[in-house]
C-alpha cells in the first residue's frame, strides 16, 4: 500500500493560515491502514487545530469528512454539494488523492496534510517499510522475490557492491543489504545458479525516466 506520514502540525498551521473554513478530508484506503489520514486521524487533527485556534480566539472552523477513496471521481463527488461551505480542503490522502481532489474542484484550494513516503508493507505495529518503487518492469522473478530497485540504495541489478558487510548495507546498521538478502534466499531456494546470470541493462523508460506513466486497459473501457 501507499505509506504516508502525518505532517508536523506547525507546517499545517502555516499552510492553513490564510483560510477561515477548512474541511479536513480523510481517505478510507491506504492512509487509513497506515494510520496517517483515515477517519480517526481526521478527528484528532481537527480537534488539535480547533484547540490551537480556540486558545487564540481565532475564528477558524474545521469540518471533518472521510471519503472511500480520493483517487476515484465517483467518491470525490460527495464533496460537490458542500464545496461552497469551505475556503480550503486539507486532504490527508496520499499525493494522488490530493491532486485528484484538486483536479476535480478547480476553484477549491487544496493543501496536503501528510507526506507520501513510499509503497510499503506493515512490518510491525507502527512500522512500515518500503518494498516497491513502481519501476514499471518487475525483476522479482530473477531476484528471489526481493526487490533490489527499492531495497538497494544503489538500485544495483548485479550486486552486492563493495560496501556490503555482515549482511548490512553501507548506509548503516539499520539497513539490511538487499543483495545479501537475495543471495541468502537464492541459497535457501537452491537457485544459486541464477546468481551467476548477469542481469541485462534494465529499461528505465518504464520508470520515472520516461515521464508520467499511464495504464490503458481497453477491454474494460466503455
Amino acid at each position: 500500500m501507499i505509506i504516508a506520514r502525518k505532517k508536523p502540525i506547525e507546517e499545517i498551521l502555516s499552510d492553513i493560515a490564510p483560510y477561515d473554513r477548512i474541511l479536513i478530508l480523510g481517505c478510507n484506503e491506504c492512509v487509513t491502514v497506515c494510520e496517517a489520514g483515515g477517519k480517526k486521524e481526521v478527528e484528532v487533527l481537527a480537534s488539535a487545530l480547533s484547540l490551537y485556534h480556540l486558545n487564540r480566539r481565532d475564528k477558524k472552523t474545521f469540518g471533518e469528512m472521510t471519503l472511500e477513496r480520493q483517487c476515484d471521481r465517483e467518491y470525490l463527488e460527495e464533496i460537490r454539494p458542500v464545496q461552497d461551505d469551505w475556503d480550503a480542503v486539507l486532504s490527508l490522502a496520499c499525493g494522488v488523492g490530493v491532486q485528484f481532489t484538486a483536479e476535480t474542484f478547480p476553484k477549491l484550494p487544496l493543501l496536503p496534510g501528510v507526506d507520501t513516503i513510499c509503497l510499503g508493507a506493515n512490518e510491525d505495529r507502527g512500522l512500515w517499510t518500503e518494498r516497491c518503487q513502481a519501476c514499471g518492469s518487475c525483476v522479482l522473478a530473477k531476484t528471489a522475490g526481493i526487490c533490489p530497485v527499492s531495497r538497494c540504495a544503489k538500485r544495483l541489478l548485479n550486486g552486492p557492491c563493495g560496501g556490503s558487510a555482515n549482511g548490512k548495507c553501507e548506509l548503516g546498521a539499520d539497513t539490511n543489504c538487499a543483495w545479501q538478502l537475495i543471495v541468502d534466499r537464492l541459497k535457501a531456494l537452491d537457485r544459486m545458479a541464477d546468481y551467476e546470470t548477469v542481469a541485462p541493462i534494465k529499461d528505465w523508460s518504464t520508470d520515472r525516466a520516461g515521464g508520467p506513466r499511464t495504464v490503458t486497459r481497453e477491454g474494460i473501457q466503455i
Partner: peptide, 8 residues
C-alpha cells in the same frame, strides 16, 4: 506530543 505542537 500534540499539545506541545499546538503550544499547550
Amino acid at each position: 506530543k500534540i499539545l506541545t505542537e499546538i503550544k499547550m
